[in-house]
Structure formats: structure tokens, C-alpha cells
């Protein structure tokens, strides 16, 4: 009985720690390290939630096309260096733009290029509804 009590107490203390712990860079699998290679330098400084998010992205990596894999790796560091607020803002905007009607969604890339070609002042005026 004493042994079972001790085991129960140890489990109570260890299970949450085990559940919440995220792996170090060396504990990742070879495939995960390859997918997340651009983040090798930043990994140690990331919190658990950040690491878990990237691990999930790495698990989707094999299902992406080569072009998508290239874009993903190219943007990883830029994304990791944003503040949590900036990332949340980008996610909100992504959800909003992706919920647009299909025909508008398909032209988003061209619209972005048109928007970027405008002078900053004109962009600001146009976004306020004063073209």
C-alpha cells in the first residue's frame, strides 16, 4: 500500500510536467529537424507552445508540394521573429481574407501587387475610402 501511495504521488507530480514539456532541438526526429532547419538557431529560445506549433507544422511538411515547402522554409524565420501580437494580427487578417468570396480570393495576389505598386500616401488614402 505504501508503495502504491508513493507511486501515485510521484505520478501526480510528474505527469503534468511530462505532458507540458516540449522537445529540445536534439530530441526532434531527423525529419522534423530537416523541415525546421531554418529555426535551428531560434529553437532554444522558444517557449513550449511555440515549439509545439512548429512541430505540428513540421508534421504537415511532407504533405506539401516542393513549392510550398520552399515558401514555408523561406518564411519560417520571419514568422518566428514576429511578436505574438503581430502573428495574431496576421492570422486574423488571413482568416478574414480567406473568408472572402471565391472570385475575390483568387485575385488576391494580383490585388496585392496592385496595392503595393501604389505610393504609400495613395494606399493610405484609398484604404480610408478617399481615392
Amino acid at each position: 500500500m505504501a508503495a502504491s501511495r508513493l507511486a501515485v504521488l510521484i505520478c501526480t507530480l510528474l505527469i503534468p510536467a511530462a505532458v507540458l514539456a516540449a522537445p529540445t532541438w536534439n530530441e526532434l526526429s531527423a525529419a522534423q529537424r530537416q523541415a525546421l532547419a531554418p529555426l535551428a538557431g531560434e529553437w532554444a529560445a522558444m517557449d513550449n507552445a511555440g515549439r509545439q506549433t512548429w512541430i505540428g507544422i513540421a508534421e504537415r511538411y511532407d504533405r506539401l508540394t516542393p513549392a510550398e515547402q520552399g515558401r514555408l522554409q523561406q518564411r519560417m524565420r520571419e514568422w518566428a521573429q514576429l511578436s505574438p501580437d503581430e502573428r495574431e494580427r496576421a492570422r486574423d487578417q488571413y482568416r478574414a481574407l480567406r473568408s472572402m468570396p471565391a472570385e475575390q480570393r483568387e485575385s488576391l495576389h494580383d490585388e496585392w501587387k496592385r496595392y503595393r505598386s501604389l505610393p504609400p500616401e495613395e494606399r493610405r488614402r484609398a484604404s480610408e475610402g478617399n481615392p
Binding site: I57, R71, Q93, Y94, L97, L108
Partner: peptide, 21 residues
């Protein structure tokens, strides 16, 4: 969301620029 956003045709800047929307 992050996977979809990072492989999207639009760059990250497009999603950070609230004036674009």
C-alpha cells in the same frame, strides 16, 4: 492556420498590413 498562411501565395506582409484589407 500558420501552415496555411506560410505556404500561401501572398507574403506575410500582406497579412500584417491592415490597410490592405
Amino acid at each position: 492556420v500558420d501552415t496555411a498562411l506560410l505556404i500561401d501565395d501572398l507574403p506575410i506582409d500582406a497579412y500584417l498590413d491592415t490597410e490592405f484589407r
